[in-house]
Amino acid sequence: MLTNTTSVEIQFGDCDPAGIVYYPNYFRFFDNASAALLSAAFAMHKRNWLDHYGIAGIPMVDTGARFIRPSSFGDIIEIQSAITELGRSSFGVRHVVRRDGDIMIEANEKRVWVIRGEDGAIRSAPLPHEVRKLLGAA
């Protein structure tokens, strides 16, 4: 299925007092990497594909990570993101973080394609056929 790689330079503000990346910041990086993955698939920026497909977003409903090695201020990491599964209204994303080729983190997400109802509440919606195709469905 679809893959994309994003490069991130670790900033001073990403780190905790020990000088390593404060772990919640990785989830911010993963959120950006997921958006970049879909932007590459749809050939448009996130603000455009939200409007184009008429969705409210792609919230994360499940996540997990295995932290193998830390990263520090000034490191440049690469996040390889891949679609791993397609459900009716959800999709899985796997992120592998590398520095100089070494695996630093392995993470996964489950996200849901959501629309806003007439009452303003968000609810899941089926992945459109075009989206399924662009994300690598056979």
Rank of each mutant, 00 (worst) to 15 (best):
K110C: 03
S81L: 13
I105D: 02
D102L: 10
R69Y: 09
D62G: 12
K110E: 03
S89R: 07
G57L: 01
G87P: 14
S71I: 06
A56H: 05
D75H: 13
R69G: 06
G57Y: 00
H95F: 12
G74D: 08
A65V: 08
I83C: 08
R116L: 04
E118S: 11
T84Q: 04
S71M: 10
F67K: 04
Y53W: 07
R47F: 11
F91T: 07
H95Q: 14
R88G: 13
D102S: 11
I76L: 08
L86P: 05
I76Y: 01
D51K: 12
R98P: 14
W49C: 04
T63K: 05
I79N: 00
H95V: 10
E109S: 11
R98K: 15
V114K: 07
V61Y: 01
S90G: 09
V112S: 00
D51S: 11
I83D: 01
V114T: 15
R66H: 11
E118P: 14
H52A: 10
F73L: 03
I105Q: 07
V112I: 06
R94Q: 13
E85Y: 08
I105P: 04
E118R: 14
I58P: 02
F42T: 02
V93C: 13
M60H: 04
L86E: 01
T84E: 10
D100E: 14
A41E: 04
V96T: 12
E118N: 13
D51A: 12
I115G: 10
M104P: 12
H52M: 05
P59A: 05
F42Y: 06
F67T: 04
E118H: 07
K46D: 00
F67N: 02
M60W: 01
V96P: 02
V93M: 07
E106R: 13
F67D: 02
T63D: 02
G74W: 07
W49F: 08
L50W: 04
K46E: 04
Q80C: 10
N108L: 15
R111D: 04
G87M: 11
I76M: 11
A65G: 10
G74T: 09
